[in-house]
């Protein structure tokens, strides 16, 4: 029984890591196809992609959209969560439902809806349009995380601050935000990674300035290439380091 469990665990990890390992190994392939046999080690594909202007621009665009849209989503979500947590408002169940709703809808539908809507009101596909779409998908997440993190402990601290003369803005800035810092950090981090990696909405809502996933998508059209492996490995390296850093600095800091 015990042995079986360990074998299962090993097989599970093998399955999970198989594609990643293949991806990374063949990004160093000294040949034109990223498939066996391995023909030797080279970094030329990395050199090629880092000097690829379109790719690097797309990378910059992705980072920009990810950070700005996450900042907006977090701000809106945090304020809404605070508003709904501090007082019982009429219709608060309905409002919570509406704020969470986009979470249960496919990105395709959100993207298509926005495309239809933007077409009708004359907004051209752009990074801004994509950013707006990313706020829509990340707002429910930020709201839910903030709302779940607000407990009695926090409410009573806010009450005490109000009693001591703090205005609502001061309560938010000096008490709520610092007390929620871990949750805010986690929400922002998750939003950034989701936005950074989001393909479909960006594909539908960008045209000339594209984000990284859209650029990678167009690379795939030319078939298998170690260059694509190199891009994938690089993105994985960046994301994985961010995750590991977040794990160490954000989530470990629970007293």
């Amino acid at each position: 029984m015990k042995l079986l469990a360990w074998i299962y665990l090993a097989l599970g990890y093998a399955f999970i890591f198989l594609p990643v390992v293949v991806l990374v190994v063949f990004s160093f392939q000294d040949g034109r196809l990223p498939v066996p046999p391995f023909q030797g080690f080279t970094l030329k594909w990395y050199a090629q992609i880092t000097s690829d202007g379109a790719l690097m621009t797309a990378l910059g665009n992705s980072a920009l959209v990810a950070f700005l849209s996450s900042a907006v989503a977090l701000t809106l979500g945090f304020l809404a969560a605070h508003g709904l947590a501090r007082a019982v408002l009429p219709g608060s169940v309905l409002m919570r439902g509406m704020l969470i709703a986009p979470m249960t809808v496919s990105y395709l539908i959100i993207g298509l809806g926005l495309l239809t809507f933007f077409n009708r009101i004359g907004v051209k596909p752009s990074l801004l349009a994509t950013g707006i779409g990313h706020v829509v998908i990340n707002l429910p997440l930020c709201f839910a995380i903030c709302y779940a993190a607000m407990g009695d402990h926090q409410r009573s601290a806010e009450r005490a601050a109000r009693d001591l003369g703090a205005s609502e803005a001061q309560v938010l800035w000096h008490i709520s935000a610092p007390m929620l810092a871990p949750a805010l950090g986690a929400a922002f981090f998750l939003s950034v990674t989701f936005s950074w990696d989001e393909f479909l909405i960006a594909f539908l809502l960008t045209r000339f300035d594209v984000t990284l996933p859209v650029e990678i998508w167009s690379m795939l059209r030319s078939g298998l290439s170690p260059a694509t492996n190199a891009v994938g490995s690089l993105v994985f390296l960046i994301s994985a380091s961010v995750v590991v850093l977040a794990e160490i600095f954000l989530l470990r800091r629970k007293p």
């Binding site: 809106l76 979500g77 501090r86 509406m98 986009p102 539908i109 809806g113 829509v136």
Partner: peptide, 21 residues
């Protein structure tokens, strides 16, 4: 005050989620 805090998120969701849908 509560309404004021919830309003921006609600408006965003209404404008860019409900309306498009």
């Amino acid at each position: 005050l509560g309404w004021g805090l919830v309003a921006p998120a609600l408006l965003w969701t209404a404008a860019f989620f409900v309306l498009p849908f």
